[in-house]
């Protein structure tokens, strides 16, 4: 094997919410399973494990991704942010507070993913209208159907007035 190639990692170093963790992992372990099963960060949820529901959304180097379709090993040296890492000085993120106020959740299972996606959406500058919010939040399924309240929560944070559909 070429020197240019690193051997299969067994010990993976992950930087999650600013903390560095070294974990012994099966090379098949996804970031999602590493977070949930090895780092005791169960806020990130598994809803399909196929990249289709968005419940496992986290930020990787500041961009939202689905953590079920990336190996933990792929994330070495990159910054992972989960729902546990978005509070500011112990206070909830503005998106989290808005979700509470607007009842933008019901069973709450998709909610951490929705929150992470919404935080990212705002950073992407894609909360300019209700339609834009709807479109760019469509990768996060909510079977309880909280969508209108999710839109309202994000709209509020974005400081946008409701625009007609």
């Amino acid at each position: 094997m070429s020197d240019a190639l690193r051997q299969t990692p067994e010990l993976v170093t992950l930087t999650v919410n600013g903390s560095v963790h070294q974990v012994q992992l099966d090379s098949r372990t996804t970031l999602l399973d590493a977070l949930r099963d090895h780092l005791e960060l169960s806020g990130t949820k598994k809803g399909c494990d196929q990249g289709a529901c968005g419940a496992c959304t986290v930020l990787l180097d500041g961009k939202r991704i689905v953590s079920c379709l990336v190996l933990a090993a792929q994330c070495e040296g990159r910054e992972v942010t989960t729902v546990e890492g978005v509070t500011v000085d112990g206070r909830p993120h503005a998106v989290q507070e808005a979700f509470c106020r607007h009842d933008a959740l019901q069973c709450g299972y998709c909610t951490p993913g929705q929150v992470m996606s919404a935080i990212s959406l705002l950073a992407e500058g894609r909360a300019g209208s209700d339609d834009e919010i709807r479109e760019f939040m469509s990768g996060n399924l909510c079977r309880c159907g909280a969508y209108p309240n999710i839109v309202a929560a994000i709209r509020e944070v974005a400081g946008q007035e409701a625009t007609s559909r």
Partner: peptide, 9 residues
């Protein structure tokens, strides 16, 4: 195509 999450990956 896809979602923002998938398009970022």
């Amino acid at each position: 195509g896809a979602s923002t999450q998938l398009r970022n990956m």
